[in-house]
């Protein structure tokens, strides 16, 4: 490794080595810690992709067999509400990216502001989702045995297997919604640490990793929106 590794080679081996306090004891230099943290986060995000892939494959399999059910189910979703939520999430992704930028520059109050906007967007997303869900509940557009469609004009006719579309809709958006809720917690925690003064232009890795998670939530929605609402 580099010559910097020798600086912690003191025989006393106590925790008070000369590195900054955010540098973990088992890392020699900041850049090593940074790269390790980023790689770890990317491995987690790769796992998230595979975690969601099961439901996407289920979507594909059922769609190939019952395209008419998917067209009918998709037609019941509100493109405008979905589109608004897409824009809200994209905007929150922008502010998340800007919070990392501000952290890199050491602008503490800007980091706070951008994180706050990101969290507010997450709540807006959930509120819109709540209105969408309650409408589906009202109309009985529910999966499995809870399927009892009754739209404005009495009994509605849907192709067979349309309830499977709504099963996938609730599972996919529900799992995504859980990620949004967790994201609110993670971003709030990073905000608290920012206020505590944990970050500096030398150390902003946690802000970066939290933003990476938030971008993944956005990425999943980028695919969910057209698959569920548009086609």
């Amino acid at each position: 490794m580099s010559t910097a590794s020798e600086q912690v080679a003191g025989a006393d081996h106590e925790h008070g080595h000369d590195g900054p306090k955010w540098l973990q004891h088992h890392f020699d230099i900041p850049v090593q810690q940074f790269e390790a943290a980023k790689l770890g986060m990317w491995l987690f995000l790769a796992q998230e992709v595979l975690f969601f892939s099961g439901l996407f494959v289920a979507y594909g399999v059922v769609r190939v067999n019952h395209p008419e059910a998917f067209a009918a189910g998709s037609g019941q979703l509100d493109k405008i509400m979905g589109g608004v939520n897409t824009i809200v999430l994209l905007f929150s992704s922008l502010t998340a990216a800007l919070s990392v930028r501000s952290a890199q520059l050491g602008k503490k109050s800007e980091v706070n502001l951008y994180l706050l906007v990101t969290i507010v967007c997450a709540f807006i997303f959930l509120v819109v989702k709540y209105f969408e869900y309650s409408k589906k509940f009202e109309h009985g557009l529910l999966p499995g045995t809870y399927w009892h469609p009754h739209l404005e004009h009495g009994e509605a006719l849907f192709p067979a297997h349309t309830h499977v579309f709504f099963g996938l809709y609730f599972m996919l958006t529900g799992l995504h919604g859980v990620h949004v809720v967790i994201g609110i917690g993670v971003l709030g925690w990073i905000m608290m640490r920012n206020n505590r003064g944990d970050f500096s232009p030398e150390y902003w890795t946690p802000v970066d990793l939290a933003a990476l998670y938030w971008h993944l939530v956005d990425l999943v929605w980028i695919y969910l929106f057209p698959l569920l609402y548009l086609i």
Binding site: L43, S53, F56, N65
Partner: peptide, 21 residues
């Protein structure tokens, strides 16, 4: 790392649909 996860999700999707369809 990301590309490999996407690749395997693609394998998962393609082989499953190639079977069921």
């Amino acid at each position: 790392v990301l590309a490999s996860s996407v690749l395997f999700a693609g394998v998962f999707l393609a082989y499953t649909i190639n079977d069921t369809a």
